[in-house]
């Protein structure tokens, strides 16, 4: 990565210029890939039952997006325009396979839980969207910043949804019992007082509702985000 940093050290613009910083901060809130652009929703629904899965999914997307944006940006002047979408697809597909292989080898339990969803990163619109909209027309360093911004924007929504769903769906966070033990006959903590987990939270529709609540909160705080129809 240091090479690319050297290469793009153009005298005109410092590395962490306001414009570059904005590439990272914008997708975190006002241009969030999930809540504003409504991309990558399918994985947000599927793998947010537990925080751990959401974390590894976010790491995978981060890796694919950063490496992909970097490769596309480095190749941007070489890619024949007629097959550019195919080239982008090949890049994202290969990176996803690399991630999948690494997960299978080093965190096999997580790999089993994520199952097909790692493979489905290929179809995650955020990634192809950033390749086509940003990396094809920008230098490597801004492309990395853009990728970081978008994957963090994706990650925090995923983790927040997973946190809510794991806490209220299973009473745990990262497997630690927050509300006490709910094994039948050995209840403790809140469960001993009659609290029960909300099984709805484990089902995919609740992810949509939680994302909806985040969108609602976000737009009521920043009225500029509300579209006119």
């Amino acid at each position: 990565m240091s090479e690319t940093v050297e290469k793009t050290k153009a005298p005109s613009e410092p590395l962490f210029s306001k414009k570059n910083r904005k590439l990272v901060t914008d997708p975190l809130s006002d241009n969030n890939p999930i809540t504003i652009q409504v991309l990558g929703i399918c994985s947000a629904l599927a793998i947010t039952v537990q925080v751990e899965q959401a974390f590894w999914m976010s790491v995978s997307v981060l890796f694919v997006l950063v490496m992909g944006n970097l490769s596309i940006s480095l190749l941007r002047n070489l890619i024949p325009s007629r097959i550019r979408i195919i080239v982008q697809l090949v890049v994202v597909a290969s990176l996803v396979i690399i991630v999948d292989e690494l997960l299978q080898a080093f965190v096999p339990d997580i790999s089993e839980k994520l199952s097909v969803f790692v493979g489905l990163i290929i179809t995650n619109c955020i990634i192809m969207g950033r390749f086509e909209a940003f990396a094809m027309g920008n230098k490597p360093w801004p492309s990395i910043m853009d990728a970081l911004g978008n994957s963090f924007g994706y990650a925090w929504i995923l983790l927040l949804v997973a946190l809510v769903r794991e806490l209220f769906g299973s009473g745990k966070i990262l497997g630690f019992e927050i509300f006490g033990n709910n094994l039948p006959g050995e209840e403790s903590g809140l469960y001993a007082m009659g609290y029960v987990n909300n099984n709805m939270m484990i089902l995919p529709p609740m992810a949509l509702i939680v994302v909806g609540i985040i969108i609602w909160v976000q737009r009521s705080r920043n009225k500029a985000l509300i579209e006119d129809h």
Binding site: L78, I79, I83, V87, V90, V91, E101, A105
Partner: peptide
């Protein structure tokens, strides 16, 4: 266009094949 496509496939294929072989024992 053809040249680029062929080169890309060869590079990607080599990377993926060697990764898969390298991790085969662990998997």
């Amino acid at each position: 266009t053809f040249g680029f496509a062929i080169a890309l496939v060869v590079v990607v294929g080599t990377i993926l094949a060697s990764l898969s072989l390298g991790l085969a024992d662990i998997k």
